[in-house]
């Protein structure tokens, strides 16, 4: 099945939007006959997810806030001082 210009525009719009939102009607209809599209969307979702999880696993430097508070001359308000 070939992509019409209108469908292509809709899919591009969708792929740059919130993927959790239900896709617009025209895409939903198309997805029923395009198993690759579903696989493709799943891969994109998992790509985002793995970066998301990785970001959450990245520890903050222990003394980050302490350094910022010192730099802004707010040392006395640093959580480390309380």
């Amino acid at each position: 099945m070939k992509f019409s210009e209108e469908l292509l525009k809709e899919i591009c719009e969708y792929l740059g939007s919130n993927l959790q939102e239900p896709p617009c009607q025209i895409i939903r209809e198309y997805m029923r006959v395009c198993p690759n599209c579903e696989i493709y969307i799943d891969k994109i979702k998992r790509t985002i997810e793995i970066y998301h999880v990785a970001d959450q696993c990245e520890p903050l430097p222990e003394d980050l806030n302490k350094k910022i508070f010192a730099c802004l001359k707010l040392d006395d308000l640093s959580p480390d001082c309380q």
Binding site: M1, K2, F3, C34, P35, N36, C37, I39, Y40, D42
Partner: peptide, 8 residues
């Protein structure tokens, strides 16, 4: 996407 088989 429309012509080739895609693996999950």
């Amino acid at each position: 996407l429309s012509t080739e088989a895609m693996r999950e």
